[in-house]
Amino acid sequence: MNVAMNPAPAAARRSPIHDALEARGAEWRDVNGTTFAVRLRDEPAGDDIPAAALCDLSGLNQLGVKGPDAANWLSTAGVDVPADLYESRPLPSGGRVVRFGAHEFFLEDGIAGSKASELSEQLGFGAEQVYRVEHQDATFLLTGPRSLDVMAQTCGIDFREANGGRAIFTRVAGVSCALLPETIADQQAFRLWLDPSYAPYLWEELVVIVESLGGHVVGAGRLFPDLPA
């Protein structure tokens, strides 16, 4: 199957909750070909992270690969392939790769990263025994001292007993998610990946709970102050 190269620029990408952010007066900024809401109109002033902070990072480049040769293909391409199921390892130039299955991997670039998008180009429409898993996941970040209380209202996992750096496949407010507990600016944080068709619903539910606990929806700039201009 021939694939002609397209001379036109790549199509613009939009967060699945673009409209909800626009309604909050988002300041949009293009970083590395991806658009982020760096600040929202009603965000509290200053740099502090609120009691609970909810942030949309849905522009990050993602790639899924699955198949008997997937691990090999990644390794050859310079990726530190996680050995254990659900283990997360860093990608060169920022971001992470997580093992989602015996033969399945999920890559997400950091804000300034490019490995996932390079590999996506390289993969094209697919290779032998390595198949593209289309990933257009919404990425939500929840952090702050009360982030655990937000999770307690939506998710039945005991996070005190959760292994750091391991993805957890579970349900949040009734929606299947992959969850990665992490630390951001010394605070406990939760990264949620989910099917984008559920993103507007889950976002609204999380916003209500976050705000009821005295938290705020924030732009990406609050959590990543060195966002390139």
Partner: peptide, 10 residues
């Protein structure tokens, strides 16, 4: 066997 003990709802 893969994800460990979870509530039946999952």
């Amino acid at each position: 066997p893969i994800n460990g003990p979870r509530p039946l709802q999952e």
